[in-house]
């Protein structure tokens, strides 16, 4: 059973779409397991100015990606890196046990997109 929050994010995903000239793009998961998340970031002065996502997966996968974009928008890169799967779950009022991996995927997608940004910029 999904919480109302999960259903709301599944039915009305926030920041869904793609950004053509993103500063960082992260794709995690694989089709074999039934979940793929892709996060696009626009970063200016170390702050996440815009974020979009695309997800192939179940209701929880869509909802965790959607909430993850909300959690990191306007945050600094370091703040975004500190967003954990726990925070993602809490923001959705919880997830069924079998879907906890979706929140991990969301955390990994954020990290992958930031890593891509850092690689592109040659930061660190």
């Amino acid at each position: 059973m999904y919480s109302n929050k999960v259903m709301d994010h599944f039915n009305n995903p926030r920041n869904m779409g793609e950004i053509e000239k993103a500063d960082g793009v992260g794709t995690v998961g694989n089709a074999k397991c039934g979940d793929i998340m892709r996060i696009y970031l626009v970063i200016e002065d170390n702050v996440i100015k815009d974020v979009k996502f695309k997800t192939f997966g179940c209701g929880a996968a869509v909802a965790t990606s959607s909430i993850a974009t909300e959690l990191i928008k306007g945050k600094t890169v370091d703040e975004a890196l500190n967003v954990t799967n726990k925070a993602v779950m809490e923001a959705l009022d919880g997830l069924p046990t079998a879907k906890i991996h979706c929140s991990l995927l969301a955390e990994e997608a954020i990290k992958a997109a930031i890593e891509d940004y850092k690689n592109k910029k040659g930061v660190e």
């Binding site: 995903p13 869904m16 793609e18 794709t27 089709a31 793929i36 998340m37 892709r38 695309k54 997800t55 192939f56 869509v62």
Partner: peptide, 8 residues
């Protein structure tokens, strides 16, 4: 499909 990276 509009949401799917596989479709993209």
């Amino acid at each position: 499909r509009a949401m799917s990276p596989l479709y993209e």
